[in-house]
Design a protein around this nucleic acid. Structure first.
Ligand SMILES: [Mn+2]
Ligand SMILES: [Mn+2]
Ligand SMILES: [Mn+2]
Ligand SMILES: [Mn+2]
Lengths: 221, 221
DNA sequence: TGAAAAGATTAGGCAAATCTAATCATTATG
DNA sequence: CATAATGATTAGATTTGCCTAATCTTTTCA
């Protein structure tokens, strides 16, 4: 039998956390992400270790095995393909699809994923700008320039977000900062690191550091 | 919280069985359908009774309450909408979609079902000719004329199947007997109740009683 | 009509996934 | 560097959904 839905969720969480904790993911951070108490996580880590999905040494933190990473990437692939589907074909907004994709990502059918990918035209990025792993689990690594790193007078294109919360996404949408939007940094306020930007033909707007550092951009040229 | 996936499966099973056992569905038949042992079913029936999804009197058999039927119809609606989606938009054959729909029917999002229904153009029947309950759970009752009831010389149109097994569906497909196909009964063999039919511009073919009684038709004119 | 057979329920148990409380290990700090 | 704080694990319990074996109820039929 394949991994349970619960096991899949753990592996996906460990995969994501390992990008910030490459030397080993902490029990606590897994629990925080999945809303589970530490003992629950400890139990599961032992089990995932037994199944060789993770390398687990008590009190040390965990890393994925190749098999564990393969499973995590498969789930992430399905999640992002379904999000793309919902936005591109079912008229959902980018802030509405995550919870539904959390369910759809566990549907078990290789053929379905194939057809979904084909139906969408083999997309490379999801509605939040996150790269979609291909059928072999290959994922394009993404540069990590955020809007706060752009200097006064320079232009950049919004290519992703670091915060996926409904609140943040709705806020960006409300000020017309969506994927592929070109943004010009008009001014940088040293006092609080906020910036003044102009996007499209909207009026100038001030963005807090908290906002700008959660916006992933690509420099123009 | 809503009903669990397991509870939904029981209610759907009871709904289907109640069409054949209207005075009360037997524990054994539920177990047979869901591949569960009788004690497992007894346990769950007590629980479903406590939750007022079914009327349960020990040793008597069960019937759905209005609430239980509402839930069952919601699951059946989702199952049939997803099957329609997979066949009409993802290039699946009618014998390939049931198992995937068994998973998709449990995805919990009213908005998703709405958009799916809209995307499909509010279909009334699924790829097997089964009627799709509307958003209020209203389902058009289907007449029950099967191909074995058609007399020699008469024509009928294939509008559904009673057996949904992959084997049966693949067999029908292989002899070009698919939904909306017009069939003429050329001869009836009294000895074994088999019939000789002609469909489209294919040559005449003999169908066993077992096959003909699993094909739902509509008389021509 | 009174066994025997069939069907249903009860009793007792197990695995998965969760929790709280208690204990153990690591890290940080006065 | 000793100890307090933090983090992780172990112990013990609960819920859900499943099982086998034993018992009870209903139906069948000789
Ligand atoms: Mn998401
Ligand atoms: Mn996403
Ligand atoms: Mn089906
Ligand atoms: Mn169907």
């Amino acid at each position: 039998m394949g991994p349970s839905k619960t096991e899949e969720d753990y592996l996906k969480a460990i995969y994501k956390l390992s990008k910030v904790q490459p030397k080993g993911v902490a029990t606590k951070s897994i629990g925080d992400l999945l809303n589970l108490k530490p003992p629950t996580v400890s139990d599961m880590l032992r089990k995932l270790g037994d199944k060789k999905f993770i390398k687990y040494a008590k009190y040390k933190g965990v890393t994925l095995t190749n098999e564990g990473e393969r499973i995590a990437l498969k789930i992430i692939r399905k999640h992002r393909l379904w999000e793309t589907f919902l936005v591109d074909h079912f008229k959902f907004k980018w802030d509405e699809v995550h919870d539904i994709a959390e369910q759809l990502e566990h549907i078990d059918s290789a053929r379905l994923v194939e057809r979904l990918d084909e139906f969408l035209g083999f997309p490379k990025f999801d509605p939040h700008g996150d790269p979609i792993p291909d059928k072999d689990g290959v994922i394009v690594p993404r540069h990590d320039i955020t809007l706060d790193q752009i200097k006064k007078g320079q232009k950049a294109v919004l290519v992703g977000v670091k915060d996926h919360s409904t609140e943040f996404l709705k806020y960006l949408e409300s000020i017309s900062l969506t994927l592929d939007t070109e943004v010009k940094v008009i001014n940088v306020i040293n006092y609080d690191k906020s910036i003044v930007v102009k996007a499209g033909n909207h009026s100038e707007r001030n963005l807090s550091f908290q906002v700008s550092k959660n916006i992933i951009v690509q420099r123009n040229q």
